[in-house]
């Protein structure tokens, strides 16, 4: 039962080879022996990997695991089960970073052409135009000018066309 982590959108395949007498894990085809030492703070890790000690910090967020080790911070994404409604993803314009809406250039019910600018957003002083990925009809604009949004927020939905 291989487990997958994502680093920078690249999957890392991990397989548990053995649990006793010690844990053996295969990472992208290379096998490692692992022993964990417990620590008072669960965020501090102390691992013995192939006989060498490794210490650092780890933080488990909602969808990511952040690791500090050897002067480097690495962020892994934990693959999520696709949420209900993800089939509709192609019908939404989502924010790929947090920001603020500068202006809304369309309205519900409006037919828009591929490439047409729908929203202007600003993230950290940089403005970007969000345009229609295809010809579509705007179903709903979920934001108004000056509204702040988080990454992943649905900003605008298109009407689902009958097949």
């Amino acid at each position: 039962m291989p487990t997958t982590l994502l680093h920078d959108d690249t999957p890392i395949l991990v397989d548990i080879v053995a649990r006793v007498p010690e844990l053996a894990v295969e990472i992208d085809g290379v096998q490692h022996r692992v022993a964990a030492r417990s620590s008072a703070d669960p965020r501090a890790f102390s691992l013995l990997i192939d006989g060498a000690a490794h210490e650092g910090w780890v933080y488990r967020g909602a969808t990511e695991i952040h690791v500090r080790h050897a002067g480097r911070t690495t962020i892994f994404a934990v693959p999520q089960r696709s949420a209900a409604g993800s089939a509709r993803a192609g019908n939404d314009i989502r924010a790929d970073m947090p920001g603020v809406v500068v202006s809304v250039h369309c309205a519900a019910g409006q037919a828009v052409g591929a490439g047409e600018t729908l929203l202007t957003v600003e993230s950290m002083k940089l403005q970007a135009a969000l345009s229609a990925p295809r010809d579509a009809v705007v179903d709903r604009v979920h934001v108004v000018a000056d509204e702040a949004f988080e990454r992943g927020a649905v900003l605008l939905s298109f009407r689902i066309e009958a097949e």
């Binding site: 890392i12 890790f45 650092g56 488990r60 695991i65 480097r72 892994f76």
Partner: peptide, 13 residues
């Protein structure tokens, strides 16, 4: 990423 970072991430999961 280093194996140690990957393993630390896995152990936190």
């Amino acid at each position: 990423p280093e194996p140690a970072a990957i393993l630390a991430a896995l152990m936190a999961d």
